[in-house]
Nucleic acid binder design. Structure first.
Lengths: 198, 198
DNA sequence: AGGCCATCTTGACATAGGGTAAGAAATAAG
DNA sequence: CTTATTTCTTACCCTATGTCAAGATGGCCT
């Protein structure tokens, strides 16, 4: 199963087999049953999670006990609080398996060692962070300017498969609305569609 | 004036004078008068901007001709569309001087050369990007969960000096509300304050 | 199969914040 | 200094979305 992660790394960073073997000790595999919470807000964990199978989510809980889904991570995605990872700080988010999942836990030493032994690794990090930044910027723009319907359509475009794999209310909190509102938005959209069709 | 930038870099990355001199050709200084737009949405520019004096803002314009301020950058801050910078893509934002300003334009070659000749440079980049990511995440959380008043208070806490240097409506669009709403929020806050005082 | 629990939908109502417009206040321009 | 322009405040009404509550639906466990 670690092969999936190795394959991913080799694609992204020209890492050799030997280099990977040196880094292997800083990785751990783990299987998670659905609904398992692997990190809690406030835990100092300092690992990043790579999803090889299944789907995880990160979320915060606000003062009124409401959850807000920060990110979904299906196969081949990373999840975790990078800032907590880099600076050994408490995690700002909970992380939970939404489906039965298999993950790779990456220790901080992996990242530090890789930066030393593999010349392309830091460049990969920078580029991965930039991609993430750009996605977050897009999300901020949507939250600033777009209606509930527009945000939903954007989400469907970017992550069409996630929608069918997680409860609707999780997507709703991710989009900054209530489950009821998202339900209404979808109703309205199907109404429009049938109007166009008929 | 470039000395300010050199000083900044030396603090953040242990760059030597010689290394800086090698990189100097990839930098340019520029003075901007208030209200000058230096980059337009769609321009391919591929430079990052470091502010040595004054204050700039980046913003988008939506389908209804409304502006949304993405970021403010006072002295010692960076501004620019990193993704456009890294991938030579058209800028997603406009960038404008809100005050008379002096800036350093950093060419892409600066970043690439620095990564090669200065060992700590990539680590600096990663850490700068992480800081930024964490700020953006915080902003997303606020937009998802917080009321207009809470977002305003958060902004005042994070950037107390910006508020007094830019028009209120710019801050309002940055916070995802109208100028009128922000005005109401402030009125309400002073009302609360005088209640507590009296 | 039957019951249970989570999820999704729908309706009635409440509310934060938006849109518009007018005037006050501040800043810039002549 | 005087006028013009931009910014800020305030009032009024309106709309999108939230809240609460009741069913409907569907998946899952025994």
């Amino acid at each position: 199963m670690i092969e999936i992660f190795k394959q991913y790394l080799k694609e992204k960073t020209q890492l050799s087999d030997e280099q990977f073997d040196k880094l292997r000790p800083f990785l751990a595999m783990r299987e998670l049953k659905k609904n398992t919470i692997i990190i809690r807000q406030g835990d100092t964990f300092s690992k990043m999670i790579f999803v090889t199978k299944g789907l995880l989510r990160s979320y915060t809980v606000d003062g009124k006990d409401k959850q807000h889904v920060v990110d979904f991570a299906p196969e081949q995605y990373w999840i975790g609080d990078q800032n907590s990872f880099k600076l050994n700080k408490p995690s700002a988010v909970f992380i939970e398996a939404v489906e039965d999942s298999v993950i790779v836990l990456m220790d901080k030493d992996f990242y530090e060692t890789a930066g030393k032994i593999a010349p392309g690794y830091n460049a990969f990090m920078v580029s991965a962070l930039l991609t993430r930044l750009s996605l977050m910027q897009r999300r901020i723009n949507m939250l600033l300017a777009a209606t509930a319907e527009e945000r939903y359509l954007e989400f469907m475009e970017l992550f069409p498969n996630v929608m069918s794999r997680v409860p609707l209310w999780m997507v709703a909190t991710h989009l900054g609305m209530t489950a009821e509102s998202l339900s209404r938005v979808r109703k309205e959209l199907t109404r429009k569609k049938t109007l166009n069709a008929g």
